[in-house]
Structures are given as C-alpha cells and as structure tokens.
C-alpha cells in the first residue's frame, strides 16, 4: 500500500508541476497580452500539436529513422574502432586525439561542409548523427575491453589462450555492459545530430524531418507550430532513449541475470 502511494507520488508530482507551469504560462500570456509570434499560449501550442499531428508524426518517423541509423552505425563502427584500440596501443595513441576531435567539433559548424561533400540527403543526416554520437561508444567500449579483471586475464594466460580467444571469449563479452551504457548516452545525441543536420539539409525542400519542419515554421513565424515541433523532438529523444534502455536492460538480464545498472541506484 505504502509503495503504491509512493509510486503515485512519483508520477503525480512532476505531472502536477507541469500543469502548474502550463497555468502560469497561460496566465502570463493573457495578462501581459504577449503577441502570439513571441509566446503563444499553451492552449494554442496544444492546438497546433493536434492540427499538425500527421505532419509531425511523419516528420518524427523520418527523423527517428535517421537517428536510429546513426545510432546503429555508431554502435557498429564505434565498437570496431574500440576493438582496434584495445589490440594496439600504438593505434590508440595515434588515433585517440582524432576521436576526441569528433567529440569537440562544433557540429553546427561542420554540417554545411558535410552537405557539400555528401549532398542534401538522408546519408548526410545519418553522417552528422554518427559524428555526434560515436564518441561515447568508442570511449566506453574501449574502457570495457581494456579494464578486464586481472585475475580473469591471468586465467586465460594460464591456459595459453591466443589473442583471438582472449578477445572473443573474454574482452568482448566483458565490454557488452559498457557498450549498452555508451549507447544510452549516444541515443540522445543521435537525435540531436539528426535534427541539427535537418536544419541545413531540410532547406532543399526534398527532406521532411522534424528539423526541416522547425526551420520552415520559424520562417513562417508560426511560433505555436514551432513549439509543437519542439515537443515532438523531445518526445522523440525520450522514445529512442527508452528503447535503448529497454533493449539494454533485456540484453544484460539475459547476459548475466543482472541489469548492470544497479550501481547507479
């Protein structure tokens, strides 16, 4: 019973706060007579959300595909690069600064350059999503592959295990939980990458992602619709994060009967 009440509290508190925030927002717009272009009332945002639901759903689907493809590429290529790093210290020393470059590069600044190279297309969106989301995968998986328990390493050495056996039977399985943790961080980033890329690519008029919708609504000074698209972006980020989380927890539970996330509690 007590836990039920606590659970209700967990949900009612943030929802209640959200409603209070909406009310204050509505009253501020009413009292100060703020123009719709600057700040539309929450009701008009909800209205825009309803009116544009099919456009937003279609755009979300397009952006979700790009972000998912980017995340998948990050998982695959990030893991491969991490395996390479774990096998050769020279490679690690030589390439790691460039990997950090991927993390620090201002994506907004290089997106136009990528469009010149790759064109106004889906591929460019995925490419930007990969550039922005690959670092957590490389960093986490490399650390997972390298920080294997010393006793386990000795156990393999005592059996005269080959480098390949050490990699496939010990290092890679040990790094699975780190890969999943990396993907949790990357999932949000890949959505950001896809939307930022769409700001630029969308201008061609051939692409219909959430970023495209947002630039179009901004140009039309439809602030309520712009805010509705913003809410769709947030929902999309949460959705992808939740999907990765769910998949990760399922994999880890099957893998070791623990979720691997306990330490965070």
């Amino acid at each position: 019973m007590k836990s039920w009440i606590r659970q209700c509290g967990t949900y009612t508190a943030p929802v209640g706060l959200f409603l209070v925030f909406g009310l204050v927002w509505h009253l501020v717009v009413q009292w100060f007579d703020i123009p719709k272009i600057i700040l539309p009332s929450p009701l008009s945002v909800i209205n825009a959300l309803w009116v544009e639901r099919w456009i937003l759903l279609r755009a979300s689907w397009v952006t979700l595909q790009a972000a998912s493809a980017g995340l998948l590429c990050s998982a695959v290529f990030g893991s491969l690069i991490a395996v390479l790093f774990s096998q050769s210290a020279t490679m690690r020393i030589a390439l790691y600064p460039y990997v950090i470059f991927l993390q620090t590069v201002p994506i907004v600044a290089i997106a136009p350059l990528l469009i010149i190279w790759s064109g106004y297309n889906f591929r460019t969106i995925v490419l930007v999503a990969v550039i922005i989301s690959i670092f957590p995968v490389i960093s986490n998986v490399t650390s997972g592959l390298l920080s294997v328990n010393e006793n386990l390493r000795d156990l393999f050495r005592m059996q005269s295990a080959t480098r390949w056996q050490m990699l496939t039977k010990l290092r890679i399985p040990a790094a699975v939980s780190q890969l999943i943790l990396g993907l949790r961080i990357s999932s949000g980033l890949s959505v950001i990458g896809a939307i930022v890329a769409e700001f630029f690519v969308g201008n061609s008029g051939e692409y219909d992602g959430l970023g495209t919708i947002m630039t179009a609504r901004q140009a039309q000074l439809k602030t309520a619709e712009l805010m509705a698209a913003l809410m769709a972006c947030t929902a999309l980020g949460i959705l992808l994060f939740a999907l990765v989380n769910l998949m990760g927890a399922t994999v880890l539970r099957r893998w070791t009967r623990t979720t691997g996330f306990e330490s965070e509690k």
Partner: peptide, 9 residues
C-alpha cells in the same frame, strides 16, 4: 584465485 573469478555471462 582469491576471488572466484567466474565469467558472469
């Protein structure tokens, strides 16, 4: 070893 050092998976 001092710890069981079993592979958890």
């Amino acid at each position: 070893f001092q710890e069981p050092a079993l592979l958890p998976w």
